[in-house]
Design a binder for these strands. Structure first.
Lengths: 342, 342
DNA sequence: CTGAAAGCGCTAACAT
DNA sequence: ATGTTAGCGCTTTCAG
């Protein structure tokens, strides 16, 4: 591999000139710059990342703690990661993938100067990593919103507002009892921040609107059907649904559609089956829009802009790296729209 | 941050002794070792990764090119990545996430000495990256099996054998016309290696067994149902199915179950509905086993051991890094089993 | 068994 | 506008 010294002698300049041509940190004559750039191109010169980080005390790498746990919505994770990586590359950063679920791995990456900063996903409401992260000797952005984040910067979708939005809509549409069909039990059991915020928004808004809300974690599989069926058996007056579980969504949607059809048949044979009837069940999905569009039986959706969450997280982290501060919490606002929208 | 010099003076030894204590590359007296180790612990010393890579000419980081493309089975990708990361950590390696789909990003990572080696996923049969990868100045392992891999090392699940296995089983079970319900059109269109190998194995074995095979790419969504319905309309004598499409699997399974039920009702009312009838349709799923277990209506499955693929890829790459060579192609053998197995 | 010292390839003062 | 040079923190000869 060619070194900066090779480039310098090929271009007939000193190594600092080469360095400054690359960094743009001082003015270089047009002519010199061209000679240097040509030498760089001809030699296929690439600065040695380790040497650079040693001298400059920065790596241009960020550490991304991504969950490979069970129960999480895998599409959402992948899209967030995609957003992070794209945005990072656009800003000349690379991404080191960290997956240990405690703070040890993060600490190691920072401590050994492998990364300049951290982006941490899969945050729990009362996350045990927070103390360590606050003490970390590098900028940190959480993708999520724990209850006691201290002064850590947080970026996320506003799940609480999404829960409110859904409950208000369902109430406005005349449903008196509404249900949140949510993340798998294990996700709620570990107090995952987004799941809890969603519940909070949903139940709070329901109370304000004077309707009765219940919350039902379901596994991300066909078994979700049994759970929902049981829920409806226990209380058939539940007619408004918010589903936040990408894997269970198709099953739940199909079940509700089937039940509606059966009741429609029984109650009013001969009616056009596609027309919404007073008292029909209503289903709002909370999931990435592309995903929802392939699921029949969904009435409305609140998009989870997963890629934008990742992008925003990286953008905010970049601001921190650049010495800016900005707001401590940045939440992307939800919007509700008909599922038929393309 | 503490440096090696701090540790050395705290322990009253030279820096080279500290270095040798850490690397174990020369014998150290018990007493000295303990003093050094204590100093390291007390200072919380972490070697600077950049300095280390500069001096040692190796980074202990591998680059992982993972696809964030559409159409790929997202669970499989995640699990492979998980396997890679776990295995890498077990061997003291970190993972840099590379996502550009050309060889540029890989070249940059190697050229700037950010990584010691590359693990490349999402391989196409005639992959345009292969020339660049062969010329790469670092060990490379492909997760996939292109047609002309040159002398690149490849690791993958044996999709061709899996296709054969499924076709043979379906033929043995008496089906005369069998269908492969496969990856989405865009995946086949870009000649993804695993998809093509699966087709090859499936159709070749069908021919050998004297049965008629057809191949049908389907989108990973409810739309898969329309495609399969159309296929069955065109040729109702197709009774054996292999499904390789994690997102479409539940829909296809449900459709086939429904059709079987309908025909069962018509043909032989009163029979126990769960007993397999001569001429019934049969469905084999090719997907991660945990995924299949939540899908009703699948008769048998061939597990895609995604995590093991990732582990194996990393293990083989490690062998290369350690100077070993080993076989150029390592394929994990498929096994077929009843879907009811837990 | 241990130290001293020469780099590894770069950045950023400090010179002109 | 450019060159000189002192590190950055480590590994690894070379010397005892």
């Amino acid at each position: 591999m060619a070194t900066i010294a090779d480039v310098a002698s090929a271009a007939g300049v000193s190594i600092s000139t080469v360095s400054y041509v690359m960094s743009g940190k001082r003015t270089i004559s047009q002519e010199t710059r061209e000679r240097v750039e040509q030498a760089i191109a001809e030699l296929g010169y690439r600065p040695h990342a380790g040497a650079r980080s040693l001298a400059s005390r920065s790596t241009n790498v960020i550490g991304l703690q991504a969950p490979l746990r069970s129960g999480v919505d895998v599409h959402v994770i992948m899209q967030i990661v995609g957003g992070v990586v794209r945005e990072a590359r656009a800003r000349q950063y690379d991404v080191l993938l960290l997956t240990s679920d405690d703070a040890k791995g993060l600490d190691r990456a920072v401590g050994s100067s492998m990364v300049d900063a951290l982006l941490v996903m899969d945050i729990e409401s009362d996350d045990p990593r927070i103390a360590a992260l606050s003490a970390m000797d590098a900028p940190v952005v959480l993708i999520g919103l724990p209850s006691g984040a201290g002064d850590l910067t947080c970026v996320d979708f506003d799940f609480e507002a999404a829960g409110r939005l859904a409950a208000e809509r369902l109430a406005a549409d005349g449903h008196r009892r509404i249900a949140l069909i949510g993340s798998p039990p294990e996700v709620l059991a570990r107090h995952t921040s987004y799941a809890e915020r969603l519940v909070r928004g949903f139940t709070a808004a329901a109370e304000v609107c004077g309707v009765t809300a219940s919350v039902h974690p379901v596994p991300g599989s066909i078994e979700a059907v049994d759970v929902v069926r049981q829920v409806l058996e226990d209380d058939p007056s539940i007619t408004g649904f918010l589903v936040h579980n990408e894997a269970a969504l198709p099953y739940v949607a199909a079940l509700l559609t089937a039940l509606d059809a059966a009741q429609g048949d029984a109650a009013q044979e001969g009616d056009a089956p596609q027309s919404r009837q007073q008292g029909d069940r209503e289903l709002i999905a909370l999931a990435p829009a592309e995903l929802v569009q392939t699921v029949p039986g969904v009435d409305a959706l609140i998009d989870i802009p997963a890629e934008r969450i990742g992008e925003t997280g990286m953008r905010v982290l970049y601001e921190l790296l650049s010495g800016g501060d900005g707001p401590r919490v940045r939440l992307l606002a939800p919007a509700l729209r008909p599922a038929s929208d393309a």
